[in-house]
Design a protein around this nucleic acid. Sequence first.
DNA 1: TAATTCACCTACAGGCATTAGGTAAATTCC
DNA 2: GGAATTTACCTAATGCCTGTAGGTGAATTA
Lengths: 194, 194
Amino acid sequence: MRAGLNAERVTVAGADLADEVGFGEVTLSALAERLGVKVASLYSHVAGLGDLQTRIALLALAELADLAAGELAGRAGRDALAALGGVFRDYAREHPGRYAAAQHPLDHETALASAGPRHAAMTRAVLRDYHLAEPDRTHAVRLLGSVFHGYVSLELRGAFSHSAPDSQESWVRVIDSLDALLRSWPTTDDDPRT
Amino acid sequence: MRAGLNAERVTVAGADLADEVGFGEVTLSALAERLGVKVASLYSHVAGLGDLQTRIALLALAELADLAAGELAGRAGRDALAALGGVFRDYAREHPGRYAAAQHPLDHETALASAGPRHAAMTRAVLRDYHLAEPDRTHAVRLLGSVFHGYVSLELRGAFSHSAPDSQESWVRVIDSLDALLRSWPTTDDDPRT
DNA sequence: TAATTCACCTACAGGCATTAGGTAAATTCC
DNA sequence: GGAATTTACCTAATGCCTGTAGGTGAATTA
């Protein structure tokens, strides 16, 4: 009896498994068992464990980009900022394994073909309303990426769950702070430090 | 002939190996070979791979806390902020394996006995100069942690190395931004959103 | 110098990734 | 509709890694 697998079904099953047991704990053995198939059979669809990890990472990046594109449509300013951050935060909480996979290192060529560039473009789009000129725009992109990724990572690790106030409150304040910061961004044409 | 090992020597060697090949790639096999010893001999000093990983994590957290304490002495305000962030950033670049180990999850009991609480205390100390009352102080602690960890993680992953301007410039701007943000932190006794 | 400790060893079992080579089900072609 | 081809899946075997059991000899202590 054939199970009717292909590369995408295997990848999705791997992503689901990652969400349940953690990305680093995904093994071909466990995945094969879940799919009702022998381990060697998986090699007909993916090149090995490393290839599977890369495919899950690409899946997660694409899903994240699609979600972000949907939430960002028709929003601007603080609204867009909160929406973009919220996509990352919600995705990480609903799909921790997929979110971890999205941090998996990709070689340069693969990264360029991934949804990574779409992410960068969307962050730039969110900043459009704040009217920053280069290089400040790039500095701001990096700051937003750092805050979103950092906050979500720490929250996922439980770093904010053992002390008051609730993490949700801090999240709202962080978004507010970023919004205020971007509005009053100090434009620096000559900074003696740089 | 005896190699004269003990738990600490094994842990330090493991940390050095992690800095060279990555924390996730540390194996007892490779570590034993590097120490000129058979794999089974390592079990006289550490309880297994998991225990070794925990010990490397605790070592990294302690080293980071010691470095931070040293750099923070006698500094305040933006100076202290830059020093604390710089410790994380420099440590991660010089010791990527140790930095990755510091993110290794610890069970609650172990985390409490680790240098983790010292880190929290030092971040609060840096904020002293900005005169924030609770719960704003905690929100700010979480923001700083997020930015530092997020920026360092992304930079380490090479996310900022394929576009101008130089990451160092963005780092200085991020520190400046945080300083400005903390100085003008909007004190909110009643925020209708929370 | 004798007893004890313990750092290190050999030998083995189990789990996982990976490859080689085979079989039968699905698909394609005439 | 039957033959040829493709391919999804299999069994079998190898090698690396973690982890355990039990032994040996060097260092330490009495």
